[in-house]
């Protein structure tokens, strides 16, 4: 890990740009980047964790109306989106692998597909939002279709959870787009640089969050 001698002159032999001047060697830099991103992901767990805590408390306090409200979400779109995200998770993971082997064309292609799948996800999400609004499924609507007050708690959580997830998706797409363009111009070394690996980790995490949002928001309250 850090058992490297103090930065010395031998570091100068490495290619420019890939190694920042304050690091000693690439393995130290890679370790720092990986750890930094993972720590950030730990904070993300707690960020979404606050929402999960609210869900947990209200599902316990008002189970009936809460799950009745959950049965109103668009399960078809939610499930299609799950499939889309799982596929994009695969292409992102393969892109990371290909980048490790410096396979330029494969990386471009895989990141491209990941971006397209991400856009498809957001488009489906947007259509779903349009349907929800059409069905008056937002707490301030005077025609909110569900009787029990606690149904509005569920729908508040639905909007915040999916909204924040969509924000994370958008950030991820932005990162992929920048990396795709940089990779197309070949202005960084795919294998020496951490960019693709870091973006892949972040994308997998956004994917992973959805794996929990999907049952909480779409699958809950479906069985009799």
């Amino acid at each position: 890990m850090s058992k490297t001698p103090f930065p010395g002159q031998e570091a100068a032999a490495l290619p420019p740009r890939a190694l920042a001047s304050h690091f000693h060697d690439l393995s130290q830099q890679k370790a720092a980047h990986d750890l930094g991103l993972w720590i950030f992901l730990a904070t993300e767990i707690l960020f979404f964790g606050g929402l999960f805590a609210a869900y947990l408390v209200y599902a316990l306090l008002h189970p009936g109306p809460f799950f009745e409200a959950a049965a109103e979400t668009e399960i078809l779109i939610g499930t299609i989106n799950t499939a889309i995200l799982l596929t994009s998770g695969l292409t992102a993971a393969l892109a990371v692998k290909a980048a490790g082997q410096n396979r330029h064309d494969a990386v471009l292609l895989l990141i491209g597909i990941t971006i397209l799948l991400g856009l498809a996800f957001l488009a489906a999400k947007g259509f779903e939002y349009w349907l929800d609004i059409h069905h008056h499924l937002y707490p301030t609507s005077p025609d909110f279709p569900l009787e029990a007050p606690a149904a509005k708690l569920f729908w508040s959580l639905y909007w915040v959870m999916t909204g924040l997830h969509a924000v994370h998706m958008t950030v991820g797409l932005g990162i992929w787009a920048v990396i795709w363009e940089m990779a197309r111009r070949r202005n960084f070394s795919l294998s020496d640089n951490s960019r693709v690996r870091i973006a892949g980790l972040y994308w997998a995490f956004v994917d992973l969050m959805w794996l929990f949002l999907w049952p909480l928001l779409y699958l809950a309250g479906r069985a009799g």
Partner: peptide
């Protein structure tokens, strides 16, 4: 936005 996670009128705490 009028969402109501802590709104007691919706049963929020």
């Amino acid at each position: 936005l009028g969402l109501g996670i802590f709104n007691p009128e919706y049963g929020g705490d």
